[in-house]
Design a protein around this nucleic acid. Structure first.
Lengths: 141, 141
DNA sequence: GCAGAATATGTAGCATGCTACAATTATACA
DNA sequence: TGTATAATTGTAGCATGCTACATATTCTGC
């Protein structure tokens, strides 16, 4: 067993390296990668209200996981939540002013992160990589 | 932001899907994927003694992470550890009989897991995928 | 309308990852 | 030799993932 032979293990190494780098880069914003991804989602979906359920489904994680991340974001003042008046089971999640501002501060991070990861790859190679990963994902789902 | 556009996020989805499937499959053996990977390593390196440091470096994780996994494995009787007589700082890790037996029970898991993930991919595509992932890993390290 | 099912969120406890700090042992060099 | 440094392991506390169970609200079918 060595990293390049065991693709499952190699994917884990890559994923954790991405997380470590991103968490380091996001430290000045007092955010982790998982937390930043939630802010990105909220910013990109401001036209519609967002519930915990929406986030669970988009990020493919369990609801206790989302609750934990949202609680930390709300504690730091990046988001605000309130019970939906139409359906009291549902909690609607909003970006606060602070959350909106930090989003713009992180914009360069968001754009440069993927670019750095894909440097030295041609457009054709990137397309091929996405295509192969899609097949792998389909196989394991 | 959608999974196929953000390769970083997509890699996270794939990795967590692999872990969920593996942890489910390993439940009958009372093991998690991280724990099983340690047993695989110990089995493959029985000719040499293994320290915590060796495992940290191979799996590219911090030492408290390794300590936690080893403590759970030792608590369940799959491994045994003792202080090295030559260098009392070092703890040597060994597979127990129970650990050796469960390794053979899991052998089909180990072999079929990767195969399932890579079904519908030609040898050429698998080679290409490994090659692209190596470039990505090099970019982010 | 009411009982039971379904849905959304909350809580408890665990595994695996981390950093920061501590303790022990070995090494290096003045 | 003796002291400072390095190396290895240990501990505390946190973030993010999970399952299992609990609670509150809505929906369904009679």
């Amino acid at each position: 067993m060595c990293p390049s032979d065991d693709i499952g293990f190699f994917l884990k190494l890559i994923n954790e390296c991405i997380e470590k780098n991103a968490n380091q880069a996001l430290k000045p914003f007092d955010l982790t990668l998982s937390q930043a991804r939630i802010l990105f989602y909220l910013h990109d979906h401001q036209d519609a209200t967002t519930s915990q359920k929406d986030l669970e489904e988009f990020f493919e994680v369990s609801h206790p996981t989302i609750i934990g991340i949202l609680n930390r974001l709300e504690g730091k003042g990046f988001i605000h939540s309130e019970h939906c008046s139409k359906d009291k089971r549902v909690k609607s999640i909003f970006l606060t002013d602070k959350g909106g501002k930090v989003f713009y501060s992180m914009d360069h991070f968001r754009k440069n992160n993927e670019a750095n990861m894909l440097q030295d790859l041609t457009d054709k190679q990137i397309k091929e990589l996405k295509s192969l990963l899609k097949i792998v994902y389909k196989n394991i789902q």
